[in-house]
């Protein structure tokens, strides 16, 4: 048994002629909360998809529990995915199923458990995220934060070894953010899983993560514990962590010379 449950080795990925990742190396040790941070559009979510085997890398490999993800056939990938739970950015709850049925979905689809046991398990999972009382509601009746907690209950329904969080804090009010933050840490420690968080919310992520990778321009530009990174003098990390407007990441999208564009109106169509 390898000490690292997920290993990303010299991974490159690109599509439609655009290179998104060039030679990324990361390791995710068992039982830890590891965060991948970076600006919008830096390919963080794509990394999760690569781990889940939804897309294939153009070079390098991702190993989950020692198995190379993109070398598996369909059944192999499905077997690997049963070790994973994923929380999507907006929850991705099944809108035609109730909260209860949403959490019960993976159990009903993937196991032969009797309905009475599924009922108990679902209520346990919902209790863990504090929404046992909401089991009869439909997803449309939930607030954004509640939907994400239900989705979290669904992600842990089959007690996965790895839980992946795609932007778990985006668009939440501070109280809900705190609740989710706390949940991720507690669930990780209580279930003994490994958590991979993709986020750009510095404060919350630094509060719960054991280790953080910074991704920019398709490369890992910095890594370390949250404390190390707070002290980092690397210009990009400094800009990101302290939320400065201008720095290595420019405020302006690449454009022609401002003056000549304003004056030479003919050339602009």
């Amino acid at each position: 048994m390898t000490p690292n449950i997920v290993e990303i080795d010299n991974l490159s990925f690109g599509y439609k002629g655009r290179v998104l990742h060039k030679g990324i190396n990361m390791v995710f040790p068992r039982g830890k909360v590891v965060a991948i941070m970076g600006g919008s559009g830096s390919g963080k979510t794509t990394l999760l998809r690569l781990i889940g085997g939804q897309i294939r890398p153009s070079k390098g490999e991702v190993r989950v529990d020692g198995d190379v993800v993109h070398k598996q056939d369909r059944d192999g990938i499905y077997k690997l995915r049963r070790k994973m739970g994923m929380l999507f950015q907006h929850g991705a709850l099944f809108t035609d199923l109730s909260v209860f049925d949403n959490v019960a979905f993976p159990m009903r689809e993937l196991t032969d458990l009797p309905e009475s046991m599924i009922r108990d398990l679902v209520l346990m999972k919902l209790n863990a995220v504090g929404l046992r009382g909401a089991h009869a509601l439909m997803p449309t009746e939930l607030s954004g934060g509640m939907a994400r907690r239900v989705a979290l209950a669904r992600a842990i329904a089959l007690d996965p070894n790895i839980i992946m969080y795609d932007e778990p804090f985006a668009g939440l009010d501070p109280i809900t953010m705190g609740v989710i933050c706390d949940l991720i840490r507690t669930l990780n420690d209580a279930l003994g899983t490994t958590s991979i968080i993709v986020s750009h919310d510095v404060k919350e992520t630094f509060m719960i993560a054991d280790y953080v990778y910074f991704v920019a321009n398709g490369e890992v530009v910095a890594e370390g514990t949250p404390d190390d990174l707070m002290q980092s003098t690397l210009p990009f990390v400094h800009q990101f962590v302290h939320g400065e407007k201008d720095g290595p990441v420019p405020f302006h999208y690449a454009a022609k010379n401002y003056q000549s564009e304003l004056l030479g109106r003919v050339s602009v169509k």
């Binding site: 994923m86 979905f105 993976p106 689809e109 989705a151």
Partner: peptide
């Protein structure tokens, strides 16, 4: 996508 990730086709 969520279904795919749950190993449900």
């Amino acid at each position: 996508s969520a279904m795919e990730m749950m190993a449900v086709n």
